[in-house]
Nucleic acid binder design. Structure first.
Lengths: 248, 248
DNA sequence: CCTAAATGTCTATTGATCTAGACAACTATA
DNA sequence: TATAGTTGTCTAGATCAATAGACATTTAGG
């Protein structure tokens, strides 16, 4: 395959505008490091030829990426890449949210959006091995790295075992620390299920995504060392900022 | 939240047509089992009100889903749900493609699209612990369950150890069996990395997806029991047909 | 200090998407 | 056998997405 003349295909009349398809492709190319040699996106005219579209269409795509803060156009020079990393989130028996991220981002933020007491139902009761109707503490949180939201989670904990979960989380900012405060010093990841889908309106807002974006939704069960489940969580990751790594 | 009056939001001027956003939402609702009581999608007028759009826009969305074979409209009755399952693909130390799928689909298909001999480069050489330039057998395959494509994979094997990989795979239809024929009776999954992104044109074709669809791309390394890597694979799953389950 | 190369802005036109309304055709049921 | 509820089809207009071309503005480099 020749390097210059590769025509990258975009599809018409699919309900996804060309400029958005192109924005997605460029975002992917950036995170793949395709433009690392120059640190810039190719010129608009080159991209237009590459994708077989008008230059204005490419400009719409680049404008969207600039909106995301991914690139910055400089008249006369070109379009500079501002950010390219994808944060790797490691899933293993010892999965801890903050730990794996530590080296990849300078500053980790956790925000408690709200909490509630709810009765256990269907999937969650099963996962936690509780009778339907057992009381749970429900926590809504958003986590971010260097100011960019990375994940939005809803977590459930048995209320009898962790009665002050919400208050403690608000104070300590970490589930691991709250477990510790309740006398649970160690726990392991029992299982994780992952699906990918389009973000809904709530997720677009929480994760500051542009519409059409993808979320990775992980349902995880953590258990104490005796195998008793202590947490069920439904975490939605901003897919274009994250990579999941599974150690088996 | 009242059950009838919930206004589900769709976003305008985002580069993703309303009908496609709505199709994505309905597809998700179907796979969540939201319509299981009736086995039908709500009437077009109800959906139009729910999403705050014109009925014609909803019809475009349903037409797309009918195209996928997910629903079937019957004049005078309503729009019936034809399929709703998501296949679960299990990732563990002993991940074998066919095994976990066994009970979920009646018939598993594997198709060898092509093969090649290539020198190891960058990421792949590192993953397999080989010197750059070492010869690899490259296999392109598509796997399906009950006739629907589930995944498209590109796999790499050290050519010195598995010289007849391609021919044997064509004959046996399973990597596990080819390993066995080469004297490798057991192997384990060393690591898996997962990203989610929009499918490109090639993937749309291979996996028979509608544009705008999502793929889960998994990079996996399998190793023999001595820890020597024997396979690197890049598998792209059709995200709306699959769920990944990770046992740790 | 030109000039080439790049992004920025404007106008005009075409095709796709969405809305609006009306009515036909079909199904189930009272 | 009406009737209510549903999907199917058609027309017309409004808005968004994409193309096309021209030219301005900025930057880097000879």
């Amino acid at each position: 395959m020749a390097k210059t003349a590769v025509r990258k295909t975009v599809e018409r009349q699919t309900g996804v505008a060309l400029w958005r398809q192109i924005a997605d492709r460029i975002r992917l190319a950036i995170s793949n490091g395709d433009y690392d040699t120059t640190g810039m996106v190719p010129p608009e005219t080159a991209l237009a030829q590459e994708f077989g579209v008008n230059r204005h269409t490419v400009r719409s795509a680049l404008a969207a990426l600039a909106d995301e803060g991914l690139v910055r156009a400089v008249q006369g020079r070109g379009t500079l890449i501002e950010r390219k990393e994808r944060v790797t989130y490691q899933i293993s028996r010892r999965t801890r949210f903050s730990q794996g991220l530590g080296r990849q981002v300078k500053e980790i933020g956790s925000r408690l959006l709200g909490h509630d007491q709810v009765p256990a139902s269907g999937e969650i009761a099963t996962a936690l091995g509780l009778a339907p109707g057992a009381l749970l503490v429900e926590l809504h949180t958003v986590s971010s790295g260097d100011g960019r939201p990375l994940s939005a989670a809803v977590s459930y904990f048995p209320a009898d075992r962790f009665p002050r979960m919400a208050e403690e989380y608000a104070r300590l900012g970490s589930v691991t620390k709250v477990f510790s405060a309740h006398g649970l010093d160690d726990y392991v990841r029992a299982s994780t299920e992952i699906v990918a889908r389009h973000a809904d309106a709530e997720e677009l807002a929480l994760l500051e995504l542009s519409p059409g974006a993808i979320v990775l939704e992980a349902h995880a069960v953590n258990a104490d060392l005796e195998g008793r489940p202590v947490e069920f969580s439904r975490t939605r990751f901003a897919a274009d900022r994250m990579k999941l790594r599974i150690e088996t």
